[in-house]
Design a protein around this nucleic acid. Sequence first.
DNA 1: CGGGAAGGGGTAAACGTTTACCCATAGGTG
DNA 2: CACCTATGGGTAAACGTTTACCCCTTCCCG
Lengths: 334, 334
Amino acid sequence: MAVTIRDVAERAGVSVATASRVLTGSRNVSPVLAERVNTAARALGYRHNAVASALRRGRTNTVGMIVPEIGNPFFPSIVEAVERRLQESGRDLFLCDAQQDVTIERHRARALADRQVDGLIIVPVSATESRATLVEAVQRTPVVQVDRYVEEYPADWVGVNDELGVGLAVEHVVALGARRIAFVSASLDSSSAQQRYAGFERVVKRHGLPSDTPRLLGTFRAEWGRSAALQMLAEEPFPDAVVCGNDEIAIGLLGEFRRSRIRVPEDVLVTGFDDIRFAQLADPPLTTVRQPGEQLAAECIRLLDARMIDRDLPVQRVAIAPSLVVRESTGGSS
Amino acid sequence: MAVTIRDVAERAGVSVATASRVLTGSRNVSPVLAERVNTAARALGYRHNAVASALRRGRTNTVGMIVPEIGNPFFPSIVEAVERRLQESGRDLFLCDAQQDVTIERHRARALADRQVDGLIIVPVSATESRATLVEAVQRTPVVQVDRYVEEYPADWVGVNDELGVGLAVEHVVALGARRIAFVSASLDSSSAQQRYAGFERVVKRHGLPSDTPRLLGTFRAEWGRSAALQMLAEEPFPDAVVCGNDEIAIGLLGEFRRSRIRVPEDVLVTGFDDIRFAQLADPPLTTVRQPGEQLAAECIRLLDARMIDRDLPVQRVAIAPSLVVRESTGGSS
DNA sequence: CGGGAAGGGGTAAACGTTTACCCATAGGTG
DNA sequence: CACCTATGGGTAAACGTTTACCCCTTCCCG
């Protein structure tokens, strides 16, 4: 079998305790013995057994993360940022995909907890149906919600102020003269969808804009953007601007408008949300609300670490203000 | 602390052995006792400790996966497919991101092996510099390479026939009358880049096409597509067609062409590779070579399972034939 | 020089499962 | 009835670390 710490100790002529102390640096060991242990370990090709260590210490130096769907290009950006942060403290990230399914999400959460991750970062699939999973997870391990959160259960959260973000987009198109503004987003299953919708309604109301414009709620996918576009094209009057719940929807919308010879931004203004990689590559480049991924990640790890130190800390919800990125889909930079 | 199998056994009035046997189903237990154990477990909220189990059994029911960069939209699609496959056999996937860095890649591989994953699926960052990592991993656990492979080290691989795939694209534009064909791709660090380049040269040579057209090798990113486009615009003569090493490059290229009022496909034909989600949303929708993600995933798991059963199996390399998806960037469907 | 503290070493008991091994009983067979 | 096998149960030894606890020196200080 594999070489164990026992083999190392034997070859170095010390006890396993000493070997362990050298290898983990948990206590001072005389330089002579330390050197002997290190050479023995190297010579034997010793590899630390993280499972045994985890069993004994009760911690794994590992953080779990669950995202609703890794294919949604917004999530990879935040995963990458989180991973970079964790690396600084020498921890590893295990990433799981819930495939937009709360049952799978629950399985993943359990699998991670069963493996004794030191903490869990989760973007809940649903504001309501992910609650049970979250509650269970919180009892087992420190948990931080990112981007989305679960209703009626207080747990740490860090994300962008969605409500404000969509507000920025609406204000922007209003400033450009739009009056009839449509909203295309995902159905209100997730907190982001809810908050973004609320932001839209708030600003529309505040400016006394017509409220009979389309509010089309489907999914956060480009497919939905396409069909929403078709739906709007079939109806009169056509809106001055379409504010979208995320970039993918907006990109789908742009594609369909293009096909139908609707010019953006001349005939209609379009905005997105997230500022994913492809937003600036869209045709025309997409005005959108940028989520500051690095900050989100930094805050997320901070929260998680705080919770790991003290499970009884008061719940924190950190909302970071997003910023508007103006591109050609609303006429380009001022 | 948490409730252990010992607590369950006690409450059910049986030995830990019996409790374990009921809970894992490893041996027959009389229905009466089984029922008692199950109710006890439920009542106490018993959760299986996967770490302890892993230590004792030497296996974890877990597969590790490392991709060069989760932000590259091709990888999520294959990750999703792999995850679905694994789910069928009740295993979990732990995904890691190498951030395009062979050092991080090595860390991740070790972290996964240290945690006793039952197998490792890896898309190597580099054809040469990932070799050491791969060799080390293979000694510790069953490994399957996906999409890319490492040079001069025989290990299982499953991927698409890149050489053939690019060939399809070139043949396609040749059939449409293109003579001067440029190639924009990533530098030849990875096997995919190498194979795709080889496929390009082979078909160009076979048709006796001019070989003084641009061969621009940078990265697999849209950014690079942009600058390659600028480079080509600055030179005479302008090519009839540009075959790109992946979709992201092609999309960057399309963006720059659009800005420079070069019409696609009228002035130049453009093809991609991968058929990522955004290929059909590009402007114009992108003709590309589709990687059959589900098949890749299925084959990958099959290989991994075979290798888990017998470590001494001869090395297998499975190349799946890709297919061409014709869209408007080359004039649309025939 | 007595006593306490500090430093560095070892022994062995955890951590929570799984399972090899043993034992008792029941049932079948010659 | 002797013997064998099948079945279902328990005991306790792993799995590889970490660490509580103990011991022995050495050193410092009053």
